[in-house]
Amino acid sequence: MPYKLSEIDTHHLASLQDVGRAVGVLRRQAKLSQTALGLAAGLSRMPVYRLEAGQDISLRSFLALLQALKLQLALRPGPTEPLRAADLKAAFAHLHVEDDAP
Results as ranks from 00 to 15, higher is better:
Leu88Ile: 05
Gly78Ala: 08
Arg50Phe: 14
Leu26Tyr: 07
Ala14Lys: 08
Lys31Glu: 10
Leu88Ala: 03
Asp100Tyr: 12
His12Gly: 04
Ser44Ile: 12
Asp18Cys: 09
Glu52Asp: 01
Leu32Phe: 06
Ser33Trp: 05
Gln67Trp: 12
Val97Glu: 13
Leu95Cys: 04
Arg76Pro: 07
Ile8Trp: 04
His94Val: 04
Ala86Pro: 01
Gln29Phe: 13
Lys89Tyr: 14
Leu59Ser: 14
Ala91Phe: 01
His94Gly: 05
Leu5Val: 08
Gly54Leu: 03
Asp100Thr: 13
Arg84Val: 04
Leu88His: 05
Phe62Trp: 02
Asp56Met: 14
Glu81Trp: 09
Ala93Val: 00
Ser33Pro: 00
Leu39Ile: 13
Lys89Gln: 15
Ala101Glu: 08
Leu83Ala: 11
Lys4Trp: 13
Leu43Gly: 06
Ala91Ile: 02
Thr10Gly: 04
Leu26Pro: 02
Leu51Ile: 02
Val25Trp: 09
Leu32Pro: 02
Leu88Pro: 06
Leu59Val: 12
Leu16Ile: 03
Ala74Leu: 09
Arg28Phe: 06
Tyr49Gln: 10
Gln34Phe: 06
Asp18Pro: 12
Leu95Pro: 03
Ala91Tyr: 04
Asp87Phe: 04
Arg84Asp: 13
Gln67Val: 14
Tyr49Trp: 12
Arg76Glu: 15
Ala36Pro: 01
Gln29Thr: 14
Arg28Cys: 03
Glu52Thr: 01
Thr10Tyr: 02
Phe92Val: 05
Ser15Ala: 00
Thr35Trp: 08
Asp87Trp: 06
Met46Trp: 15
Arg45Ala: 10
Ala101Val: 11
Arg60Gln: 15
Ser15Leu: 00
Arg27Ala: 04
Glu81Pro: 11
Glu7Gly: 07
Gly38Asn: 01
Pro102Cys: 14
Ala53Lys: 08
Asp87Arg: 05
Pro2Cys: 00
Ala86Ser: 12
Ile57Cys: 05
Asp18Arg: 15
Val97Phe: 13
Gly42Ala: 01
Leu39Cys: 13
Leu39Lys: 15
Ala22Pro: 06
Leu71Glu: 02
Val97Thr: 09
Lys31His: 11
Arg60Tyr: 08
Ser58Trp: 05
Ala74Asn: 07
Gln34Thr: 00
Val23Phe: 07
Thr80Trp: 10
Ala68Arg: 05
Lys89Phe: 10
Arg45Ser: 08
Leu43His: 07
Ala90Asp: 05
Ala14Thr: 10
Leu16Thr: 05
Gln55Phe: 09
Glu98Thr: 11
Leu88Thr: 04
Glu52Gly: 00
Ala64Ser: 13
Arg76Cys: 12
Gly54Trp: 03
Leu43Gln: 10
Pro2Val: 00
Met46Ile: 11
Asp18Ile: 04
Glu7Met: 10
Ala40Cys: 01
Lys4Thr: 15
Gly38Cys: 01
Leu63Gln: 08
Gly54Lys: 04
Ser44Arg: 13
Ala64Phe: 07
Met46Lys: 13
Leu83Arg: 07
Leu13Met: 06
Asp9Glu: 05
Arg21Val: 11
Ala68Phe: 12
Leu5Gly: 09
Met46Asp: 14
Ala22Asn: 08
Arg45Asp: 02
Arg84Gly: 14
Ile8Phe: 10
Leu75Met: 07
Glu81Tyr: 13
Gly54Val: 01
Gln55Met: 14
Thr35Ala: 08
Leu5Glu: 10
Leu69Phe: 02
Pro2Tyr: 02
